[in-house]
Design a protein around this nucleic acid. Sequence first.
DNA 1: AGAGGTATCTTGCATTACAAGGTAAAGCCG
DNA 2: CGGCTTTACCTTGTAATGCAAGATACCTCT
Lengths: 107, 107
Amino acid sequence: MISSQMLKGVLEGSILAIIQQKEVYGYEISQTLKGYGFGEISEGTIYPLLLRLEKNGCLTSVYSESKQGPKRKYYLLTEKGKQELEEFQINFQEMVKAVFDLLEIKK
Amino acid sequence: MISSQMLKGVLEGSILAIIQQKEVYGYEISQTLKGYGFGEISEGTIYPLLLRLEKNGCLTSVYSESKQGPKRKYYLLTEKGKQELEEFQINFQEMVKAVFDLLEIKK
DNA sequence: AGAGGTATCTTGCATTACAAGGTAAAGCCG
DNA sequence: CGGCTTTACCTTGTAATGCAAGATACCTCT
């Protein structure tokens, strides 16, 4: 499982990426992340992060009824959110390159 | 430049990797990291991290005179440090795979 | 003596993942 | 109906860690 420290700064971008793909709600995001191999991400992690991004202007949200439980809060990327996501992708690749360059030398 | 949050959990492993390659001292590590594209890593970041790893049992250190300045503190990996480094490599690759899988879908 | 580069370390702050817990709606089953 | 499970959202407090800022000290060159 991915260490909690290694997730910092990566989780936010990953969640933006999930939301870009389709309209989702918080609880669904935690399931999706698990499916991609992120392991069990606590709801105590996801909800504050979503609220932060919304307050931030990266996301907007809409409440919607559900047939099998309480209301769901669906999220959508704003223009700013899309920009953030692009910056994240560039940043992430840069970081991965730096670490790989470093690790490869010892082979 | 790589965001500060994205470094968390990555920097420790990267420093272990540098030390494995050769005996180095703290100040030199900051130069090396810059060379690999990590950007300017503050000494307020590196020294506490090194002390932590040493207290941790991952590193040992030796003071050595220098001809061009104050004494240098050289670091060496212990057996435990090598194990940590290997775990980091596995963990890091797992994380990168998860994020890449996620990002790739939108293409 | 003074300036600048080398080298180590400490203190306090900001960010962020998470455990733990709280609230509530819908369905199922006895 | 009454209790259990699942779904769904949120809050509070804690731990980890990168960093700015600053302190200390050695060496060389002018």
